[in-house]
Design a protein around this nucleic acid. Structure first.
Lengths: 160, 160
DNA sequence: GTCAGTGCAAACTTTTTGCAACTAC
DNA sequence: GTAGTTGCAAAAAGTTTGCACTGAC
């Protein structure tokens, strides 16, 4: 992630905090900076440990939860909900992409498809104001489907 | 939900249980029947109370969790993950639709759009085998956007 | 009769909340 | 100085697990 993206989101946060009369705490900037150092998805627990380990700055889980809500409201973070815990990713300068989720192993693969984006953008949502969208395609990834085929063969063999 | 759909899914379940050497317990059929009486989404807690109240048949939460996994595997139920708890809906005879989720009030509205379905179906997923997909559009519903506008007006007024 | 499946309660995980201490303003 | 934020620990909410009992086969 280039530095000027970090500077830009920092500025967006500053503007947002000012506009909403929230305080500019070092925790909030540290969390934003860490998030924009992460490629792909993360959950609160992962974020907590990244900040603790790489850790110039340690913040409590409670603050992470609070701050994430604020960053989502500022359009700087997007929330996903696959798996057990909520997953997040940065929103600024992050192209809208789709997710393929393996129902077997839980692996999440990102997918880029412009026609699909166009179709979504062209959808009529009557009076609903969209901020962002997430397409989750659930299925079986190649690796698991090969493993499954192998397993089935064994079962068939055993039954003969 | 018409009776013959219920009969069909019952048969699908029977076949699935047989094929996988699982037992045909009354709990499983009662849960399936209840699910196919529900229109739209539900979570485990709601399902538990529906079965308890309307309740010919009471089953434990543990059994609901177990059985839901089984029904998902049998392609009779779909799992969603918006909100705090996992949401489910019936899969058979239920057209694939999309969801608009209000980030303010949490209301979920369903959306039907054939072009979008086509675009998703035409997507190349290289070697990933899709079972179903879920498009979640996050935004602000009309009701909340009106409320927000009203609130902003008040704030502006106060600040003058 | 056997073992998969069920119910219950306890455990575990993730998220929220209450409150004292701190600090941005 | 004051009130918004933070950290901590307790609580709540959702889900999973261990175990004794039951009933489908």
């Amino acid at each position: 992630m280039e530095e000027n993206v970090k500077d830009t989101v920092k500025q967006i946060l500053t503007d947002y905090l000012q506009a909403n009369k929230h305080r500019k705490t070092p925790e909030r900037y540290a969390i934003l900076d860490t998030i924009y150092s992460i490629n792909g998805h993360f959950d609160i627990e992962a974020l907590y440990h990244i900040m603790e380990d790489k850790g110039q700055f340690r913040v409590s889980r409670a603050t992470l939860y609070n701050t994430i809500i604020l960053l989502i409201d500022a359009n700087l973070v997007i929330k996903h909900q696959f798996g057990n815990s909520s997953q997040f990713e940065r929103a600024y300068n992050n192209e809208n992409h789709h997710h393929m989720i393996c129902m077997q192993c839980g692996k999440v693969t990102e997918l880029q498809n412009d026609e699909l984006l166009k179709a979504i953008n062209d959808s009529k949502l009557n009076k609903f104001h969209p901020y962002h969208y997430s397409l989750y395609i659930y299925g079986i990834c190649n690796k698991c489907s090969l493993a499954k085929r192998r397993k089935n063969k064994q079962i068939n063999y055993r039954e003969k």
